[in-house]
Computed example of a mutant assay.
Amino acid sequence: MSYLPLEQYQRKWIFTHQSMPVPAEDLEQIKPMSQMRAAQFWKENLSAQSPDAERFSSQDWPSKTNSWLHEVEWMSEWESDDEALPEAILEHIDWQDDVTVYFCYEKYNVIETKWSVFKRHWKNFLFYDDGPILLGRRRQQALWFNTNGTVKLGQHE
């Protein structure tokens, strides 16, 4: 099985929390990967050795400074009433709404969804901001969110 039913996902509450509930039609498009599939995706796209963002080695592309163009602030917009992603992120990523994206919390915790769903509910995804990286299928741009309230905008290998 490639995906877990959302009901079985350990962090399901971030999408069903009463303060920011995600509508049912979008919940259907939020697909947590099974641990085995997430680990495979992580190994192929982020790191063969490191289990999470805190332990990337110098060989892992996210650790290379030339992977990142610049860093912008996201926390103030997360805390605001504005639902939109920060403008700098939208300028960096000009994907079509139906692009498949992968929000990678750590080796065994990767969520697949559509760019449109992520844009609408990015605040839910960032209830956990412990270094997640967003990648798009067959796209070079990447986002690396940090607990300090910044996000690195860059390109992956």
Rank of each mutant, 00 (worst) to 15 (best):
residue 5 P to N: 02
residue 61 W to H: 11
residue 71 E to S: 13
residue 2 S to L: 08
residue 17 H to P: 01
residue 72 V to C: 13
residue 65 T to K: 11
residue 97 D to C: 12
residue 67 S to I: 14
residue 88 A to H: 08
residue 17 H to R: 11
residue 133 I to E: 01
residue 94 D to W: 06
residue 57 S to C: 02
residue 148 N to C: 05
residue 11 R to V: 05
residue 40 Q to D: 04
residue 91 E to P: 00
residue 137 R to L: 07
residue 109 N to C: 10
residue 56 F to K: 00
residue 39 A to I: 00
residue 2 S to P: 03
residue 90 L to N: 05
residue 106 E to W: 09
residue 140 Q to R: 15
residue 111 I to G: 04
residue 4 L to I: 06
residue 140 Q to V: 12
residue 122 W to V: 05
residue 133 I to L: 09
residue 10 Q to V: 13
residue 104 C to T: 01
residue 129 D to I: 03
residue 34 S to L: 05
residue 47 S to Y: 03
residue 62 P to N: 04
residue 119 K to C: 12
residue 99 V to T: 13
residue 69 L to I: 12
residue 26 D to R: 05
residue 16 T to N: 09
residue 36 M to H: 14
residue 145 F to E: 03
residue 102 Y to T: 02
residue 90 L to D: 07
residue 33 M to T: 01
residue 75 M to H: 05
residue 46 L to I: 11
residue 8 Q to A: 10
residue 67 S to R: 09
residue 103 F to Y: 11
residue 86 P to F: 12
residue 96 Q to F: 04
residue 63 S to T: 07
residue 61 W to Q: 08
residue 114 K to P: 05
residue 46 L to R: 00
residue 108 Y to R: 09
residue 70 H to F: 15
residue 79 E to N: 15
residue 59 Q to N: 13
residue 31 K to H: 01
residue 37 R to T: 09
residue 12 K to E: 15
residue 42 W to D: 02
residue 21 P to M: 13
residue 30 I to G: 01
residue 55 R to A: 00
residue 127 F to I: 11
residue 135 L to S: 04
residue 87 E to L: 07
residue 41 F to W: 14
residue 9 Y to G: 04
residue 14 I to K: 14
residue 136 G to R: 04
residue 116 S to D: 12
residue 86 P to R: 07
residue 54 E to T: 01
residue 68 W to M: 05
residue 3 Y to P: 00
residue 27 L to D: 05
residue 107 K to R: 14
residue 135 L to C: 03
residue 91 E to M: 08
residue 125 F to L: 13
residue 134 L to C: 04
residue 64 K to C: 09
residue 130 D to R: 15
residue 64 K to S: 02
residue 52 D to A: 01
residue 22 V to W: 07
residue 79 E to P: 07
residue 57 S to L: 05
residue 58 S to Q: 11
residue 26 D to I: 03
residue 84 A to N: 09
residue 120 R to F: 08
residue 75 M to D: 03
residue 78 W to I: 00
residue 127 F to M: 12
residue 4 L to A: 04
residue 120 R to Q: 15
residue 47 S to R: 00
residue 76 S to Y: 08
residue 55 R to E: 00
residue 11 R to P: 13
residue 114 K to M: 08
residue 46 L to M: 06
residue 107 K to M: 00
residue 63 S to R: 06
residue 69 L to P: 07
residue 69 L to D: 15
residue 17 H to W: 15
residue 141 Q to L: 14
residue 141 Q to N: 10
residue 116 S to L: 02
residue 13 W to V: 14
residue 125 F to K: 08
